[in-house]
Simulated assay, not measured.
Amino acid sequence: MRIDLNADLGESFGRWHLGDDEALLQVVTSANIACGFHAGDPATLVRTCAAAAERGVRIGAQVGYRDLAGFGRRFIDVSAEDLYADVLYQIGALDGIARSVGSRVSYVKPHGALYNTVVHHEEQAAAVVRAVAAAGGLPILGLPGSAVLTAASAAGIRAVPEAFADRAYTAEGTLMPRTSPGAVLTDPSAIAKRAVRMALEHEVTAIDGSLVSTSAESICVHGDSPDAVAMATAVRDALVDAGLDLVPFIDHG
């Protein structure tokens, strides 16, 4: 039994520091690294890619809206052509950095508002998939049943479903908006138990008490959450104790 553990990294910018990337890279197996549009400056991305490469952690391009001020968490009604170009640009930029330190971009994961938008917004989902196809057809990590994963599969691109250990779910299987009470979980023990249930029983309890299917190849913990390292470590330890091998999903075959 194998599972991947991913987290968002490389989100510091200039003198503004966010998260402990070095510590998280000791825990996760895949790193969703910012590409400079929602977060991350070039020097930060070089350091993060180099550290990931040194530890054998797979690098994913975390593409987002051009929204540094909003940290990519605001919906932008961007045209399909502009979104296609923005996503293609971000993948290429991060892959150039990754290759310079002996690694490469192995997959793509939308960030923040873009991630949530392409769950249902078919036009933006198609633009993201078209950009990924133009960049070589890398696997796309996303929410199960989302428009972007459906479009990826139709395009012959590997669609990789993931689950979120530290986020609350709606009864429809989508993530609760961050502005809603209880949307972000903070108890490492509870988060670890959820992760094991997601990996072994393929389900999670939604905010209304109903059960939601979480057939996922990867589990995400957020790198910008308070005590992110403690939470990620608790999740990793719990998964290992439950008999799961932590392996990058890109190596699952």
Score class of each variant (00 low, 15 high):
T179Q: 12
R197N: 15
D208P: 13
L239Y: 08
R74Y: 04
M176T: 11
F13A: 13
D245V: 05
P188K: 03
V160R: 08
H38F: 06
F13L: 15
V46K: 10
D241C: 06
I191T: 05
P139G: 07
A216S: 10
M1S: 09
S213P: 11
P110C: 06
H202T: 03
H17E: 09
G72I: 08
E81S: 14
A228F: 02
V28H: 06
G173P: 03
T179A: 15
V46A: 04
S103D: 05
S218I: 01
W16N: 08
V57I: 15
L185K: 08
Q124K: 12
A7Y: 10
F249G: 05
R74L: 01
I59C: 12
L246E: 00
R178E: 01
L9Q: 08
V129C: 09
T170Q: 14
L9I: 00
D241F: 02
D251C: 06
V132A: 04
D241A: 14
F37Y: 15
W16V: 10
V27W: 06
G36K: 07
F71A: 08
A80C: 04
I91G: 09
V87S: 14
V221S: 10
R130G: 09
S189L: 02
A183F: 13
A242T: 00
S106Q: 12
A113G: 05
E11D: 09
G19A: 06
Q62K: 15
T48R: 05
A195W: 07
Y107F: 14
D21Y: 09
P139V: 04
G40C: 11
D41Y: 01
I140C: 04
E123K: 07
L5K: 12
H202G: 00
L45V: 02
P181D: 03
A52S: 14
D41R: 05
P144A: 06
L68Y: 12
V108E: 03
F164Y: 15
A61Q: 11
A34Y: 10
D245E: 14
I91A: 08
A206D: 09
G19P: 07
A165E: 08
P42E: 00
V128Q: 14
V27F: 11
D82L: 11
L185V: 01
A154E: 15
D251R: 11
N32W: 00
V196G: 13
G10R: 09
A34C: 14
L143D: 14
L9Y: 07
A23Q: 11
S218R: 01
D20W: 02
A52Q: 13
T186P: 01
G243V: 00
V118T: 13
G72T: 07
R158E: 02
N116E: 10
R99T: 02
L239G: 04
A69D: 13
G243N: 01
D245C: 02
M198W: 03
I3K: 04
A39M: 13
A147R: 14
G96E: 02
D77M: 08
S215Y: 06
V221C: 15
V221L: 13
V46Q: 07
Q124F: 04
H17T: 10
V240T: 11
G112N: 01
G70P: 06
S79T: 14
I59A: 03
D77R: 12
I97E: 05
E172R: 13
L25T: 00
A195T: 06
V204R: 03
L143T: 03
C49Y: 04
